[in-house]
Design a protein around this nucleic acid. Sequence first.
DNA 1: ACTAGCGGGACGTCCCGTTGAT
DNA 2: ATCAACGGGACGTCCCGCTAGT
Lengths: 212, 212, 212, 212
Amino acid sequence: MAMAATKGALTRQRILEQAAPVFNLRGYAGASMRDLTEATGLEKGGIYNHFGSKEALALAAFDHAVSVTGRRLTTARDMAEGARAQLIALVSEFGRWARRPALAGGCPIMNTAIEADDTNPQLREHARNAMNELHRMIGGVVKRGVEANELDASVDPYALASIMTASLEGALMLSKLFDDPVHMERVVEHLTAQIEALPSARAAARTKKGAR
Amino acid sequence: MAMAATKGALTRQRILEQAAPVFNLRGYAGASMRDLTEATGLEKGGIYNHFGSKEALALAAFDHAVSVTGRRLTTARDMAEGARAQLIALVSEFGRWARRPALAGGCPIMNTAIEADDTNPQLREHARNAMNELHRMIGGVVKRGVEANELDASVDPYALASIMTASLEGALMLSKLFDDPVHMERVVEHLTAQIEALPSARAAARTKKGAR
Amino acid sequence: MAMAATKGALTRQRILEQAAPVFNLRGYAGASMRDLTEATGLEKGGIYNHFGSKEALALAAFDHAVSVTGRRLTTARDMAEGARAQLIALVSEFGRWARRPALAGGCPIMNTAIEADDTNPQLREHARNAMNELHRMIGGVVKRGVEANELDASVDPYALASIMTASLEGALMLSKLFDDPVHMERVVEHLTAQIEALPSARAAARTKKGAR
Amino acid sequence: MAMAATKGALTRQRILEQAAPVFNLRGYAGASMRDLTEATGLEKGGIYNHFGSKEALALAAFDHAVSVTGRRLTTARDMAEGARAQLIALVSEFGRWARRPALAGGCPIMNTAIEADDTNPQLREHARNAMNELHRMIGGVVKRGVEANELDASVDPYALASIMTASLEGALMLSKLFDDPVHMERVVEHLTAQIEALPSARAAARTKKGAR
DNA sequence: ACTAGCGGGACGTCCCGTTGAT
DNA sequence: ATCAACGGGACGTCCCGCTAGT
């Protein structure tokens, strides 16, 4: 039973892997079924066996792309210890994508946000969810840093998340546009300095403990 | 009369004004000639009298959009005095667009950069030029601030420009995606603080002189 | 004054003469301004000086065509004496058009009736008026024949008119379609026999006068 | 299945049925693709899948129209017995069309003959064929009447056909133009009388035998 | 009366996304 | 999974009827 589904599921997976970069490079409006058949090596009918419409395939391919890139970030984060180190690991991993993209075409979340926000509610919803995950990933690191008395409680987790997300995504866009990683490098450097300069909780703790 | 060629030019201008938001909202691949005829009130023939192709119209509409939004920024800049004030004025004007877009659909430069960077060399070139202008606008303010002994020479004009551009564009994307201006507000606040904290030239001079 | 209008009026007349066969051959929808400029040797502006629209020119050209062909019929009629002879003259003249059209393209009234009856109320109205004239021309000959005691009062002028008009127009269509005058010849022969066989008034008169 | 090709053929048929009255009403030059898409409910692509060009569709629609109207005539003919009765049945059926057209817009053969004779050789050829059929339908009834010793051999089948066709077509045109069936009624009455008065073969035989 | 150019829109090709038969 | 065919509609060319400027 589980095996019966296996072959089809593999094909489905293969389609997603090969369709994701196509959508990410050409956009959802710009990618044609022809582009997809060429990328997958399947005929249209073959694709339609697994996805009811181009729209459904686009959504699944987007989710696939997000999960791939997301995994890269969580892995990077998990290899570091301490809030500042984890934040810097995230910045650093994302920054690397200016030279070696995690997925051809750039960040799928930003690409989809830009293309779909005014035109495709379904895709926009997926993009919102994905961006939220990224946001929460960063905010979560900060939160745990505060809880672990590593960062001062005055650090607003989601303000920092907004700033980091915005500048990293913006920098990726700039570096892709100019085909020049320098923009990303500047932003990475800036963010790293900001993160290192985040106020430590020790002072507050000391105040509390040793006060009076 | 000298003004003989007027009528056609007016129509051309009208087309640009009405086509620009269409392209900016739907993307260049997503905007159909039908969308454009509906937006302009002209039929295909009427449009093709003024632009040789949809591509040519897209380029002209992009340039028009850029010049409109660019003018907003230069105006804001010119109403302030001093490098820091001008930088803050730019940030503030751009930040306003999260609530009241200068052009329906967001920043045309970012939108076009995202859509066209992998697919449309012509558009990408225009987007590069436009982004370069923005970059130079910010860098220029810093440079003149240094020359006027207002900012310390250690401030790298183009590093700051990359950081500001990236985070503003990224923030606009976030606020549009979530339909929530808070992301832009956080970034504006952050950038404002950064700008205010830029080292003054006097301090550096004093330090040099009075050191030891 | 009268002379001042002369040159323009001549041009107007020339346009009508050269436009009429174009419309009659190609139809009003099928004739383009280009066809008309080529036929007249004028540019579009030249024609529009004399006619406010293609529609207006078409109406005038139709009326011109009708007056030309109508004149041929009245002339033929007026060269004969007596009702039967006049009717036969009309049939004969119309019949001649199968071999030598009075106007290139056939009978403008029928052509216009066929083309315009469902689509162009203005043209249809002109066609109705023209056809009515033809009808009255035939009916008038019969009427006067009855009044002159040449034909029996039992002859219905307008029934005969309908029959003659219908079969002559139909025959012209057939002969044009097949490029074969035989159809017209058969109808002319038939109508001539019918006309000759129309009951004379003498019998009725005699009856009246010498009745028992 | 054997019926595999069914769907497309049905659509093709539907297009013909809905395009035929459009062409018949507006003419072949006057009917636009837009008129046809509106009438058929299909878009251009849908129509061009089934017909290679507007011209090809026009020809097929004409043939369809002719076959529909032709069938009406053959049915009427076949419900009568004897040459005279069959001729009268044909006249009567055709005459009915002045009040209730067999096809919106009148007789497609005449309409096409008038529009296409000077401009469209292909359509003219189809019109010739169709008119020939009608001609032969009438002539055939007469011929068989002669062979069956019902009509005298002196009756010329094709002369009668010309006269009947011409006057019926002409009468239909008149009644449509004036929106008044009286013209058709007069012609139907006239033709009916003519048909009834056709010399019988018996009379001729008797004459021959019993002459002098 | 000519000329250039306007805005309109018909036309037909091409390819899109989708379906169904095999 | 393939393949052929379907209906849809975007695209751009071309020419239409008409206007304005000279």
